[in-house]
């Protein structure tokens, strides 16, 4: 093994994604191979009631099962904890619903590998094209972008994107503490508070290929209020309270 070769983990949270999870894991596998990268693929089954666990059983990945549904944040955090246990020094988060293109993982990891960023966010909105989500969702995303911008004093074009890469420092922080539900915008605040360098990379996303979004229209409003509050708290919170 080359001395500077990194150990990379790909964390895939999955809640009732039996239709898509297999394809996602296979995609990730083949595109990592294609890019000459070696990675541990970690699927975290967040208490799915369908065949998600069975679907990935024979694939070359580690499956971690929650006994019940805990929320995507807890699932992602478990993936990060496991990655840290494996000694990985970079991690990529990819959703289990097939929205995030595996072929872009290499580009997402680039700023991490050449140490120009601690956290890289795959953004749908840096360039035109690809799936840009529904109108209601775009309004929500705009709102969170504005709030994140206001709170951290810099523009993030896709603060709700769950397609992210972390280096070992960011991995350490997320494994230690990560919000439970709808964690993406809130995590950006804590990254900034811990002085991590955040970069955005333009990616093309597809529409979800199956399953249900964790956010429906009716819960959308409640979600926005809840996450906004959590973000404000994250700004006010001091680190030593942990």
């Amino acid at each position: 093994m080359e001395p500077h070769k990194r150990t990379i983990a790909v964390v895939i949270p999955a809640f009732n994604e039996e239709k898509t999870i297999r394809g996602v894991v296979e995609d990730v596998c083949s595109s990592l191979h294609g890019q000459g990268m070696d990675a541990h693929i970690i699927v975290v089954n967040d208490g799915s009631s369908d065949g998600t666990a069975v679907a990935v059983r024979w694939l070359p990945c580690t499956l971690l099962n929650f006994p019940f549904n805990l929320g995507i944040g807890a699932a992602v955090q478990l993936g990060f904890r496991y990655a840290r246990k494996l000694g990985c020094d970079a991690a990529v988060q990819v959703d289990g619903d097939g929205q995030h293109p595996a072929r872009e993982i290499g580009r997402l990891l680039e700023p991490i590998l050449n140490d120009s960023a601690d956290v890289v966010i795959g953004s749908r909105f840096l360039l035109k094209g690809g799936s840009r989500s529904t109108l209601g969702r775009r309004i929500g995303i705009r709102y969170f972008n504005a709030l994140v911008g206001l709170l951290i004093g810099r523009r993030i074009t896709d603060s709700t994107s769950g397609f992210r890469a972390l280096n070992c420092r960011a991995l350490e922080i997320c494994a230690e503490e990560y919000p439970d539900q709808y964690p993406e915008p809130e995590a950006i605040i804590s990254f900034t508070k811990q002085n991590l360098r955040i970069a955005e990379v333009s990616v093309l996303m597809s529409d979800r290929q199956g399953g249900q979004s964790s956010i429906n229209t009716f819960a959308g409003f409640v979600y926005m209020i809840k996450v906004s509050l959590a973000m404000l708290v994250a700004v006010l919170r001091t680190h030593q309270e942990r």
């Binding site: 971690l64 099962n65 929650f66 246990k85």
Partner: peptide, 17 residues
């Protein structure tokens, strides 16, 4: 309780693995 519950479930998943 919710916090402890989360940690327990995560530990359980790791142990099962």
């Amino acid at each position: 309780l919710q916090k402890q519950n989360k940690i327990l479930a995560q530990e359980l998943a790791l142990l099962r693995n």
